[in-house]
Design a protein around this nucleic acid. Sequence first.
DNA 1: CTACATGTAACTAAATTAATTACAAGATAA
DNA 2: TTATCTTGTAATTAATTTAGTTACATGTAG
Lengths: 145, 145
Amino acid sequence: MSISSRFAVGIHILTLLEVNKDEVNSSEFIAASVNTNPVVIRKIMGMLKKAELVNVRPGVAGAELARKLDEITLLDVYKAVEAVPENELFSVHGNPNPQCTVGRNIQAAVLPIFAGAQAVMEKALAHVTIEDIVQSIEEQDKQIE
Amino acid sequence: MSISSRFAVGIHILTLLEVNKDEVNSSEFIAASVNTNPVVIRKIMGMLKKAELVNVRPGVAGAELARKLDEITLLDVYKAVEAVPENELFSVHGNPNPQCTVGRNIQAAVLPIFAGAQAVMEKALAHVTIEDIVQSIEEQDKQIE
DNA sequence: CTACATGTAACTAAATTAATTACAAGATAA
DNA sequence: TTATCTTGTAATTAATTTAGTTACATGTAG
């Protein structure tokens, strides 16, 4: 299956908090930009808050980034919103037959390869920050007219 | 969500076809090694066949590899079993608000990054062949005793 | 023809996702 | 304090996917 769109929405939210930092970023306002329900935003925001990427307070309208733009990587967001369960990008079938050569060794053979593939993917995400996204978006928007 | 375990099972199957190549590899036999239902194996086998990785014939017991060991990469298997839908590892929320700077640019900003992360992951899989897995398994099995 | 294997359709239970309703609890201004 | 708005969160829903299972049609070989 695909990685949850919570990841893309999380990036959207953080980017919006910066681009729209002079206004009040309520969950309703953000939901209008993402085009979803405010509760969905609040749920994701809760995860971003738990990861200390944003500041939100109960009862107080609006949220802010909790770190500098260039200190939030896409990997931070990816982990924060649990884009993938228990850090396992690949799933492996359980209980292969231990009486079979392949069965009793397949997991040990495959796990390090999966871990490696996951690692290079995560490293790619770690090299991009919200600042990069903000720049990219402002650059693109100029050219739209 | 995690990538379907069909991927790990597909690797298991192909490896078993090699390690057990002197015997008849029926779906029932393979299912016993994977520890699942023979129909699950036949379904995955159908996908591997469509990708021309194995030879199977209706009514005839047993399957064989359709290529040399070192000409089947894990990426081939990954694609064959559709470990991920429509080649999209990451999903992106649809219809963000075009009246918002972030809304109308977020997809264009995020897609190339997602594509890059997916590409490096797939490249890691492309560097490993079934031959590597077979070797790794036989190596490990010696040390079990 | 018989016996057995593959190919497939159909159904199931479980898990996850995203959306939604409803409401409790916190904060602020009048 | 009260009224109002917001966040936090529980509960429900429909849709999708997964892995497993039953049932059976089709193909092959002896």
